[in-house]
Amino acid sequence: MSQDTRTVMWKEWRSILRSQSRRWRVIAMLGAPLILFGVYVPWDAGEYWLIGPPPIIGAIALAILTVVLTIPDSIAGERERHTLETLLASRLPDRAIVLGKLGFSFGLASMIAISMLVLGLVTFNLAHWNGSVTTYELWTGLAALTFSILMALLGAGVGVSVSLRAASAQEAQQTLTMLMFLPPTFLGITMMMLGRRASEGGGIAELMSRWDPVHVGIVLAGILLIVDVFVIVSAVKRFERAQLIQVV
């Protein structure tokens, strides 16, 4: 099984490398946020970059963006380009195909999120050199790493399910973008508003202001992990030849 999964990942990787138009599109779409969060913000924010939410937001955004760019293309796109049926007619087990596609997308998303964090750190040290290498504050670094990986996993799992239902890769990409970016955006806005109200005092907002962010982070990561497991298992179960062939 693992060899089959690696084979599918090999093909996905080659497809990105070989597709000139696609390669430039991916570079352009990921390059801008990578420069924004990996160079501009650490340069501009100073110490806040090492302790505040920007690296967490940046890592999550890049991870999701990578998944949105890769998973729909690799499933709905493969169906659109009429290569999926031939793949399904091969000896590869369903599970190896879907895990290979998931693994590639998730692996690339994690790699890019980690690259951004490293780039941000290098930029910060170059811009604000104080005689020794400074690293992220422990919980900030851990949160950026953990949440970007968990969100990449979530995006990949949701991406499979969305791609199986979508009529085209473009439709899958739009739906996945909406599903992955809207909830965190609303959550972020709500948290900001609650934070403002907390400073004014009163109600739920005041209660929330007393929460330890580390504990909140651990609880959120735990919940996200459970959701990830559920989403991935469900995506793997849905990826069945008999189901896929009906819509090929």
Binding site: K11, R14, S15, R18, S19, R22, R81, H82, T83, E85, T86, L87, A89, S90, R91
Partner: peptide, 19 residues
């Protein structure tokens, strides 16, 4: 069956991005 079978279906199924 698929292990011992080769198939050429109604589309070539070739990956246009690969050589």
């Amino acid at each position: 069956i698929r292990q011992r079978t080769g198939a050429l279906l109604d589309h070539t199924g070739l990956y246009e991005r690969l050589t």
